[in-house]
Every structure is written in structure tokens, then in C-alpha cells.
Simulated scan of single mutants.
Amino acid sequence: MARYIGPKSRIARKFGEAIFGPDKAFENKNYPPGQHGNSRRRKKMSEYGVQLKEKQKAKYTYGVLEKQFSNLFEKAARSKGITGEVLLQLLECRLDNVIFRLGVAPTRSAARQLVSHKHVTVNGQVCNIPSLSVKSGDIIGIREKSKSLEVITDSLSTARYNQSSWLEWDQTSLSGKFLNTPERTEIPENIKEQLIVELYSK
């Protein structure tokens, strides 16, 4: 499966945000990459460029490829509600994102790897599809033989799993419950979804 494996700090600098999590390289060089990154003589970005940049930021943040993102947008456009908000809700409902939000993995890419390597269960069944759309009431757990994995225990030790109001975590059984689809105000990502809608509307 194709995925981005290039330098993440460079992407974070491009968007001016640490979209992949804490990043010392980004903190040291908080300006765009390239020869003229720290120069004020950069051309003003066009309206299309601003919209495209916002779409790319959303793609990199959630680790979604172009075709996947386009399909999700089409699904959001067909759904009831505000298209941009529905798009972010669909992204948040992805299994790899839910694993990340629960605190089982430190990053979305690490969460995706856990799912792909069959360390995760959904409603008691092993699932290796990171893009699976989780529904209200679903129970997401860790396979019994995987509960002692260092990456999982280290991530959970940071006690980050109580931050999402639409998720419920049981530390005893190492399982979480997806309570409901989050509202836009509950999604912490700094993404201007209306710009993405305007881009696809051209």
C-alpha cells in the first residue's frame, strides 16, 4: 500500500504546524523549507494555492492518499449536513485515527501499523483495515497477546486517552468504546474545511 515515507519535519514546516506531533526539528526551524524559506521575499499565495494547501494539510494530518480523500469528500457531499464538517467526521471515524485518539499509539502512522499487523480488534474480531469506519457502540480493543507491546504500554502510560469526549477507555481491559460521531467543535485539528469544499467545488 502506498504511503508517505518522506521527511515529516519538512512537511510540518511547509504548513507552519507540527501536524505529526511534537517535533524538535520543526521547533528549531519554524519557517518554510527550501533555500528561501526564511526570506520575506516570497510571493503571495493565490486563492487556489491557499485552498490546495489546506487540502494537503488535511491529507497529511490523517495519513490519507489523494484517491481516498477524494472518495471521502464525495461521500461527505452526498451526506446530510455541512459537507466540510461531515468530511472531518468521516476522517475522525477511521479506525487508525480512533486508535490514535484512544492513546494506544503515539501517532496516526503508528496506529495504522498496529492495525495492519493485526494487533487490534473491533467488537472482538481482529481487524487489519486502517480505513475501517468505526460506528457508534463499537468496541475497539487490543489482542491479548499484543497487550504487552512496548509501543502500546509506553503510549498509554502518558494518560492521553481521556482527551476525546466521544471515546471511552477502560484501562483494565485495554479497550475503548466509540460513543458517537464527534461534533466539529470536538475535533481539535486546525483545519479550515470550508477551503477544501471550495477547492472541490471549482
Rank of each mutant, 00 (worst) to 15 (best):
L167Q: 03
N97E: 06
K53P: 00
F178C: 11
Y31Q: 10
A159P: 00
K53Q: 11
F73D: 03
K59T: 02
E189G: 00
F26H: 07
K57A: 00
F20D: 12
Y31F: 15
V134L: 09
P106R: 12
L149Y: 10
K67Q: 11
K14S: 14
R3N: 09
P106T: 05
D154A: 11
K192I: 09
E47V: 10
A58T: 09
F178P: 06
N128M: 05
Q163N: 13
N190F: 10
G21A: 08
T107C: 11
F69P: 05
L179Y: 01
N38I: 08
G103N: 07
L91D: 10
I5K: 14
E186C: 02
T121F: 00
D138S: 12
P182M: 02
A77D: 09
S109N: 13
K53W: 01
A111L: 04
G81F: 10
G6S: 11
H117I: 09
Q194H: 15
I196L: 10
A77Y: 04
G21S: 08
A58Y: 00
T181S: 13
T153W: 02
M1E: 08
S201T: 14
G103M: 11
K44P: 00
K75F: 03
F26Q: 08
E85Y: 05
P32K: 10
A110N: 07
E92N: 06
S9G: 15
K53R: 15
N190L: 14
P106K: 14
P130Y: 07
L167K: 05
K53G: 03
A25T: 14
D170I: 00
T185E: 01
E27S: 13
I191T: 05
S155W: 02
K43W: 02
R10G: 05
L195T: 03
I5E: 14
L87H: 06
P182D: 01
W166H: 08
K29R: 15
P106V: 04
E198F: 03
D170T: 00
G137M: 06
E17V: 15
G124C: 02
F178Q: 07
S116E: 09
L199A: 06
R78E: 11
L199F: 13
G81A: 12
H119M: 11
A77N: 12
L72N: 14
A58E: 02
K55H: 07
D23F: 09
K145E: 15
R40D: 02
L179V: 08
V98T: 09
Q35D: 12
S164Q: 10
Q68C: 04
S201P: 01
I19H: 12
N28S: 15
V126R: 13
